[in-house]
Amino acid sequence: MNYSHIHIVLNHFPTIGTFFGLALFLYALWKKKQDMQIASFVTFMVMAVLVIPTFITGAAAEGAVSQRPGVNPALVALHQDAAIVAFTLLVLTGTFAWLALWQYRRFNAPSQWTVWTVMGLAIITMAMMMQTATLGGEISHPEIRAEGVAEVTAPPEGEEGIAYALQMWMVNNAWVWPTGETLHFTGMTLLFGVMFLVNFRLLGMLRGVPFSAIHRFLPLGILGFGVTMTSGVLMFNADFHRYVAVPTFFLKMFLVVVAGISVLYVTIFDDTWALGKGDGTALRHKIFAVTNTLLWLGAMYFGRMIPYLE
C-alpha cells in the first residue's frame, strides 16, 4: 500500500460524504427534522477533517503519478489546483457546521445565518468537489476523459493557477514563512489552552466550573485550530515534496485527524454537557481527557520533530 493507494481510498469520503451530507441537510430542512439536520452537520464536520489526509496523500501521490507513461502532468496540475479550492471550501463548510453544532448545544438551535452559510458553502463545495474528482479520475482513466483533455498543456507563465501562485508567494517573500510559523504556534496556543481547560475539567479538576461554562470557550479553540491549519496548509503547499518524504509528518496528521474528530464528544454529547458545578467525572471522561491530550501532544511532538527525523 502506497500513498496513491491511500489517496484513492480516502478521496471517496469528501466527494460522496459531502453529497450525502447535503442530501441529508436538504431533506431535514424540508421535513423540519432537527435530528437529521444535526446528523448532516456532523457529516460535514467529519468530511472536513477527512479531507485533510485526502489532500496530503494526493500531494504525496503526485510525484509518482506524474512520471508514469501515459500520464499528462498538466492534467495532474489541474487536478491539484481544483483540489486546493475544494479542500478549502470543504474545511470552511465543516467549520460552520461545527459552529452550528456548538450553537445547537449552547442555544438549543443554530442561528439562521449559520444554517444558510453551511448550505451555501456545501453547495459550492459539492460543485467544486465534483470538478476535482472528475479531473482526478481523468488522470489515469483515458476511457472517461472528455474530448481534448488528454492534450491539455502546462499553462503559460503567469497563469499557472492558485496552488502555484500561493507557493511562489510563500517562497518569494522573506517575511511570509516566519509569519506562517508564528501563526502556526499562535493558533496552537489557542487550541491547546482550550484543550487543557476542557480536559482538566473532564479529569475531575476545576469541579467548581460547570461544563456548560467551559463549552463557551470551544470556538476560541476551533479558531486556533483554523489559524494553525491555514498556516500549515500554506507551508505544506509551498514545500510539499519535503513534507511527504517524512513518515513522521503522516503520523502527525493521523493524530490530528483522530483528535479533530474527537472534538465532537465535547461539542454536542449530553455526557459532557450535563456535568454541572461540583460534579465529579466518570472513568470514561477521564479516559477521553487523557487520550485527547496525548493525541494533541503527540501531533505537536511529531510536527516539531519533522526537521530532525527526515
Binding site: 496552537m188 489557542l190 481547560l197 470557550f217 476560541l220 505537536m300
Partner: peptide
C-alpha cells in the same frame, strides 16, 4: 514547544476570561 503550549495556552484561557469571554466561568 511543550512548555509554550502549557504556559501560553493556559494564559490564553485566563487572559480571555479576564477580558470578558465566557463570564459564567467563576
Amino acid at each position: 514547544t511543550f512548555g509554550l503550549s502549557i504556559v501560553v495556552g493556559i494564559s490564553v484561557v485566563v487572559g480571555t476570561r479576564l477580558m470578558g469571554l465566557a463570564p459564567t466561568i467563576p
